[in-house]
Amino acid sequence: MDLATRRVVNTTVGKKAVMAVTGVILVLFLIAHMTGNLKIFLSTESFDHYAHWLRTIGEPLLPYSWFLWIQRIVLLAAVIGHIWSATSLALKAKAARPVKYAHRRPVKGSYAARTMRWGGVIIVLFVVYHILDLTTGHLNPVGDSSRPAGNLIADFAPGRWYVTLFYVVAVLTLAFHLRHGVFSALRTLGQQTQTGERRAKAVALVVAVVIAVGFLAVPLSITTGLIK
């Protein structure tokens, strides 16, 4: 990075821009991931076929599963950038008020806004578990990478309700994170009018609700026996 860029990225606004851009990349991934998950409602074969297709995207230009690895590297970079900027800004915020108030009115900002940092930590822990569960299969009761639908159905079986519960908690945490995060990203990238503020907040709410419903539909349908 050249000096001028580094000077920009190292400011509070520059770090927010890094957070917003990486956040947008991650939200676009979430939408694609969610849409793919819903394939399970068509049939288990359709889901397995989709999962296999993910590995053949770009063939014959890209060798088998290269697209997936490129996507993983981009996502990893986005996650690192997102966490780096968040941590750096959180530390700066902590240093900005060395002496606390004896009497502080509770922060009125939305619940979502107040839980961004710890919500983010919960989401990271969930993502680690989720990869070990349904990507590598280590924590999955079946863990057969050739039949992803089977893994999914075994994972959220009614007897494993605690796994479903953990997924529900994680997805709701994510939805709250997005409700403030999407608005905040739009503001950081230059949303500047009061009418636009209402629109940006509405967009954030819609994204959060769609993501929550889309991601919760699959595990809840399996646990309740709608999908067998």
Partner: peptide, 17 residues
């Protein structure tokens, strides 16, 4: 913004307080 950051102010998280 550089003067703001150098003074030791934190960044904005759009909470609206």
């Amino acid at each position: 913004i550089h003067a703001h950051d150098d003074a030791g102010f934190g960044g904005c998280t759009n909470t609206g307080e």
